[in-house]
Design a protein around this nucleic acid. Structure first.
Lengths: 217, 217
DNA sequence: CGGGGGCTTGAGGCCACTCAACGATAGTGG
DNA sequence: CCACTATCGTTGAGTGGCCTCAAGCCCCCG
């Protein structure tokens, strides 16, 4: 089964006996560019600590964030010569990286490795497909609700989570403006579905998943 | 190079010596469902004649078409147990199909076949990524212009092309309403960028690609 | 303490949507 | 062959959801 493989999309799995794949480490400061759209895709990355945004720009500056990469996520895996997104560190971020070239060398003979690449790409595709539905057909409230549920699923550790990204990032991910995101968040807050912690409202606690799920049509 | 393989995404390439892969043929009438979302993905398809739409639905009927599949396109390749879209014939359509199971059998030992699957999935991912930018950040006029350029690229044979899909399909692909699509098309027509043929305006001729490309930011 | 960036909140505007009417086309049955 | 009908597409009028513009607050950080 293609899809029955584990979901541990770690670079470590590519360290197989027959080849020497070196995993390097690197750190990026808040806002630093990791790679740019259309630049040569020489490396494949994994978030070791922090968070990363991948986006495309239009000529007049409009931005669409295609995905957020959190701890454990692999990104920059384009299966192509150039990157199709720009990737930036959202906060101070540490990544592991391997040369794409060495991955390809293994991939030429090892079916399992190619299968892993296929699985990762399929997961990315599935996320993009769901996001097309969100961007094309959901209301502002539904988008924000879906975003919160996604983040809840991906980074909740103890019943609450802190969003690493700014309102601008959220807006550019959801195809909205920062004002609309702010209004919808506070709308949910007023309805008691969402609780903020600390006056700095990047911290969120006590998210009522069930009531929120009703809004994510 | 992963991406240096040819773009001939035909099912025929999977008919390799060591395995018996049977390619069947089937026809669907206009509007017929080929497979449904969340149904078992038992087959992989290729459009032999006609056109197909793949879409997701929200509970209240809002629809987002993720892709149109034209002659030569492979679709239903989910690398998963179930389909993530519903697929319907837009017009009378003939497809070739192979059992997913037999593809997987080959894929277990043949690196080249898995590589082909990876390439197809990567192409789908790239299309989805571009479409996210369109749905999240482009204006109605830009969306329609991008749609026309895509169709021009994919189905122009002799300087003109006929759209197989309805205004509703186009609208649900672009995240717009049928009225807006109609208005923007006529807007382009009035500006001389687009010419219709025959009173039935599903036929389009003489598309000024250069002037249209300026609108596709 | 002063400056700046991020977030919120309000007022007003606009782009795309909704609602509606009508025309054109294709398919159906007499 | 021609009504009859359903569907699709166009077009206009009006609405509304989200955007734009702007002001002010809060927090961080020098």
């Amino acid at each position: 089964m293609f899809a029955s493989l584990g979901r541990s999309n770690s670079l470590a799995k590519f360290v197989v006996p027959q080849a020497r794949v070196t995993i390097s480490e690197y750190s990026y400061g808040r806002g630093a560019e990791i790679f740019g759209e259309n630049e040569p895709a020489d490396y494949v990355y994994e978030v070791a600590a922090g968070a990363v945004r991948s986006y495309k720009l239009l000529s007049d500056g409009r931005r669409q964030i295609g995905a957020f990469h959190l701890v454990g996520d692999v990104f920059g895996l384009e299966n192509a010569v150039v990157h199709r997104f720009t990737a930036e560190a959202i906060v101070n971020t540490k990544v592991h990286l391997v040369r794409r070239e060495s991955l390809e060398l293994i991939a030429q003979e090892d079916v399992v490795v190619v299968r892993d690449l296929l699985n990762m790409t399929t997961n990315n595709l599935q996320h993009a497909e769901d996001h097309m539905l969100l961007l094309g057909r959901k209301t502002a409230l539904e988008r924000v609700a879906a975003f919160l549920l996604e983040m809840d699923r991906r980074l909740t550790k103890a019943g609450f989570f802190a969003l690493p990204m700014s309102r601008r990032d959220i807006a550019d991910y959801l195809g909205l403006t920062i004002e609309t995101v702010s209004r919808e968040l506070h709308h949910l807050h007023d309805r008691g579905i969402l609780g903020f912690l600390s006056s700095n409202q990047r911290q969120i606690v006590l998210l009522d998943r069930d009531r929120l799920a009703e809004l994510d049509l």
